[in-house]
Design a protein around this nucleic acid. Structure first.
Length: 588
RNA sequence: GCGGGAGUAGUUCAGCUGGUUAGAACGCUGCCCUGUCACGGCAGAGGUCGCGGGUUCGAAUCCCGUCUCUCGCGCCA
């Protein structure tokens, strides 16, 4: 028998009555009645109440152990009397009558309590992460995370993917995020970089003929954090497939995501959108939702009303339209009877956000109301297509600004009126991203996403179309307004790549210098291939219903990319720096 | 780099327009308590009010600077 335990803290019941058992765990709460003492003993699996009588010789010793000390208890399983049964505990029908106990590890006074769910400051929680991880919420989040990862792994293998490992010490990539650099001792003055993603490696594995690759891949990017963006490192379900079109990629991963969400959702009321998921072209997403990561739980839709206002008497809009602006509108049902303050509040909010205001028209009892209504004639008003009790809010600006701000308005009104359907996971693909865009600073053409994506229409498009009109086989998967990943069908033909880079201002030489490995590989027989890489941390965030990514990572860094527990990053001894040939300079 | 919020006991927080000795809860220490499950009761210890400067007879409170945490923007192909 195991020296420390015969059973787990979750598994004893009336079936075990009168058995002598050994349990080990943490003293979660200790209730000392002077001549009677209860200990809730906790392990990874559950809690079991242990009791000792004041007459027992170990009583005084056990009454001094302190919360979170680790103890081993030997005792007998006894039935609780009817009035002392605890229905909140799985083991609440029984308790352990302590006969012997051993203090395995004494705990000092705690810097934060483990046995309560009260919110605590992050600095303390991160510094004592091992204590925070003992607490209910984090403990179950991390268990959920590991369940999700293991489910993903099983499903990917089941549908024929092969799991790989790719290098952590690799070379710096010229495009994209800042790299984390690692100095080389052997090659003084040279650096490895940690991979931002195993992008090139997975493509090389396709070229190597492995057909279907996946990896729960660590990715490293030296960029500033957000609530949903962990600084430094994060994980992706990175996958890639050979001999596929965009639809083949979607068809492969949709069931995996659907099942992972459906099998790990918090309660059975939650509905996961059925696959195939909606496919929304990038431009349509900006038009209808004002975002390239729309939250489809929000029922509001943005429509275009430029033509209604174009020749109207509402000069504020019609003058702007003449200068090239557009008018967007959002119809909101059952709001015509909202008090004036509702509309004023939104208008004030819009002004605070930097907009000129938020005009509106309401329709009820066959009458159009609101400050703009009197400027439109009957034809124009009926073109709004308002139903009884509807209101419509207008945004007028240059196209891109109007789209973005309409997106904010859509979100704001949804929050104000609590229109979000919280019991659902709404997936969609955003497809047909533009291949190129204009860099606003330099006015030059640049790649809008991954430069290795295949342009739709391939060489023909690059040679004949306006570059800004060319779409790429580039797609994002979005769930509840969270961008889970982007992916693409890759460009596997060197001549198309030379041409695409040429349009973005890179010479053949530039390309060969920067991406020689990849480019070289494409010259020796590369299959058409593509894939994607949904973010694991964000999937867990959604399923755990956590607003902050640190709540689903066992050992996260703080916003400043510091590990407060391990004290990283840290200064390095002079000797080590010398060995690496590194001299620090004082930037101040 | 820029903007918002925060920083008071080990912890979570209160502390008004400046005014005696800066409070509460949890935790901690001691005593009492045989059926609790956030056990209860009594007593006690514990604070450079982030740091520096200023205004004032007097600053946790007002002003300036600075540091730290956090949220957002930039950034993240």
């Amino acid at each position: 028998m195991n020296n420390y335990r015969s059973h787990l803290c979750s598994e004893l019941s009336l079936d075990n009555l009168n058995q002598k058992v050994i349990l080990s765990g943490w003293a979660d709460t200790i209730r000392d009645h002077g001549n009677l003492l209860f200990i809730d003993l906790r392990d990874n699996y559950g809690i079991t109440q242990c009791v000792i009588d004041g007459k027992h010789e170990l009583f005084s010793e056990i009454s001094n152990i302190g919360n979170e000390s680790v103890i081993k208890v030997i005792g007998t399983v006894v039935k609780r009397s009817d009035e002392t049964i605890n229905k909140n505990l799985k083991t609440g029908d029984i308790e352990i009558k302590i006969e012997e106990f051993e203090l395995l590890s004494k705990a000092n006074t705690l810097p934060l309590p483990v046995n309560s769910d009260i919110e605590y400051g992050e600095e303390v929680r991160l510094k004592y992460r091992f204590l925070d991880l003992r607490r209910n919420k984090l403990h179950s989040n991390i268990l959920l995370r590991n369940k999700i990862i293991s489910d993903i792994r099983k499903k990917m293998i089941n549908i024929g993917f092969t799991e790989f490992q790719t290098p952590i010490l690799t070379s710096s990539s010229p495009e994209g995020a800042r790299d984390y650099l690692v100095p080389s001792r052997i090659h003084q003055g040279k650096f490895y970089a940690l991979p931002q993603a195993p992008q090139q490696f997975k493509q090389l594995l396709m070229i190597a003929g492995f057909d279907k690759y996946f990896q729960i891949a660590p990715c490293f990017r030296d960029e500033d954090s957000r609530a949903d963006r962990s600084p430094g490192e994060f994980y992706q379900l990175d996958f890639e497939m050979s001999f596929v079109t965009q639809d083949d990629v979607f068809n492969a991963i949709e069931p995996v995501l659907y099942e992972v969400f459906n099998e790990n959702k918090k309660n059975t009321n939650i509905k996961v959108s059925d696959y195939p998921f909606k496919r929304i072209p990038y431009n349509e997403s900006l038009e209808k939702y004002g975002s390239d990561k729309p939250d489809l739980r929000n029922p509001l839709i943005i429509l275009d009303y430029t033509s209604v206002f174009q020749n109207s008497n509402f000069k504020i809009f019609s003058n702007q339209i003449e200068k090239g602006a557009v008018v967007k509108g959002i119809i909101v049902k059952n709001t015509a009877n909202q008090p004036r303050s509702f509309f004023d509040k939104l208008n004030n909010w819009a002004r605070e956000e930097g907009a000129a205001g938020l005009g509106y028209i309401s329709f009820s009892d066959n009458k159009f109301k609101g400050p703009i209504a009197k400027n439109l004639n009957d034809d124009q008003l009926s073109a709004l297509k308002l139903g009884e009790n509807d209101s419509i809010f207008f945004i007028c600006d240059e196209l891109k600004q109007a789209q973005i701000f309409s997106g904010y308005v859509r979100e704001k009104i949804c929050i104000e009126l609590s229109l979000l359907n919280k019991d659902s996971f709404e997936f969609c693909w955003i497809v047909d991203f533009p291949m190129f865009e204009i860099d606003e600073k330099t006015n030059k053409l640049q790649f809008s996403h991954n430069p290795f994506s295949m342009p739709q229409g391939e060489m023909n498009s690059l040679e004949t179309m306006d570059p800004l009109e060319i779409k790429a086989f580039q797609y994002d998967i979005v769930c509840n307004g969270v961008e889970l990943s982007s992916g693409a069908i890759r460009n596997h033909k060197p001549e198309i790549m030379y041409k695409a880079f040429e349009l973005a201002g890179y010479s053949k030489d530039d390309l060969e210098k920067k991406f020689s490995g990849m480019l070289n590989a494409l010259k020796f027989g590369a299959p058409p291939h593509g894939g994607s890489a949904p973010g694991i941390d964000r999937i867990v965030m959604l399923l755990a219903d956590e607003p902050n990514i640190r709540e689903v990572i066992a050992f996260p860094m703080n916003q400043q990319a510091m590990d407060l527990m391990m004290d990283a990053p840290a200064k390095i001894d002079k000797e080590r720096l010398e060995e690496l040939g590194i001299k620090l300079i004082d930037k101040n």
